[in-house]
């Protein structure tokens, strides 16, 4: 079975491309022969039922699967045309260019300032205290958190509310000035108001970064993304403009899933 790619999608520059990618956990094939182009200036949403492999695929885009000993990736994934799984690829550099925000907000048990400064410090992106301050402020502003935390940068990041923590994690991710931001169900632990703030933030970041978001909420995918890929049983069933996927999907399985007839 081949992925149905909507023919009416405008051509867009591909930031990342996957070609015939399969991911195994031990003997289990979690991703089966997936090919997709992630465009530079759009938000791409991965939707699909639990266990369909969308998170696994997302984690293979910045090689986070490397941290799982039994995981194995086949096929080719490129970032700006460079194969990220080639042996010379520096994983550290890759992850600086392809940032990630997780399902559960995971600020480090450090101060808000230190959380944001973490990435710039380990990558040596700021040459002095003043420059670091600037990066931290800029990142917090972009993440829409500056007004709420500017007077308590020394407080622990874990003392913030769930939604603030998640925005702190986004600020932390953008502090190293990545090109792609991967988000793995970033709002699943948040209430609707905090979710709306994150969605607004994604909207604002759209255009500056290629954003890939995995979400269980189809409404969320519809609200924040311009491209949607529907994953099912480790394959991408259908990939197209979000507006098309949600109003007029071509594949029966996509339609059944998004209209709530799945299973």
């Amino acid at each position: 079975m081949v992925t149905v790619v909507h023919p009416n999608m405008e051509k867009a520059d591909a930031k990342m491309s996957a070609r015939d990618v399969s991911v195994y956990y031990g003997d289990k094939k979690a991703i089966d022969d997936v090919s997709i182009d992630i465009p530079t200036k759009y938000v791409t949403a991965f939707i699909g039922p639990s266990g369909c492999g969308k998170s696994t695929f997302l984690r293979s885009l910045n090689r986070m699967n490397d941290t799982i000993p039994s995981a194995r990736v086949e096929g080719e994934i490129t970032l700006d045309g460079e194969d990220i799984y080639r042996s010379k690829m520096d994983v550290v550099q890759l992850r600086a260019r392809v940032g990630m925000v997780f399902q559960k907000p995971n600020p480090f048990p450090k101060s808000i300032y230190e959380n944001v400064a973490y990435g710039p410090k380990i990558h040596g992106l700021a040459s002095g205290k003043a420059e670091l301050d600037e990066v931290v402020e800029k990142s917090l502003r972009r993440a829409g958190l500056w007004a709420e935390v500017s007077d308590r940068l020394d407080d622990s990041g874990t003392a913030l509310s769930g939604g603030q923590q998640q925005r702190l994690c986004i600020a932390r991710a953008i502090a190293v000035d990545p090109e792609v931001i991967l988000m793995d169900e970033p709002c699943s632990a948040l209430d609707p108001i905090a979710t709306a703030k994150i969605e607004e933030l994604i909207d604002e970041l759209n255009g500056s970064y290629a954003i890939v978001i995995v979400t269980h909420s189809m409404q969320q995918a519809a609200r924040v993304s311009q491209r949607t890929a529907f994953f099912h049983l480790g394959k991408i069933v259908e990939y197209g403009r979000t507006s098309d996927i949600f109003t007029n999907p071509l594949e029966e399985r996509t339609k059944d899933y998004i209209t709530g007839r799945y299973g």
């Binding site: 559960k104 932390r172 991710a173």
Partner: peptide
Amino acid sequence: VPQAMRDGSLAMGATTSETIRRVLVPA
């Protein structure tokens, strides 16, 4: 220390030993 903390640090491009030194042991 939650796995999420470790993942968070690795996803920032930290190496394993940086992650241990700067995140895991302090936590």
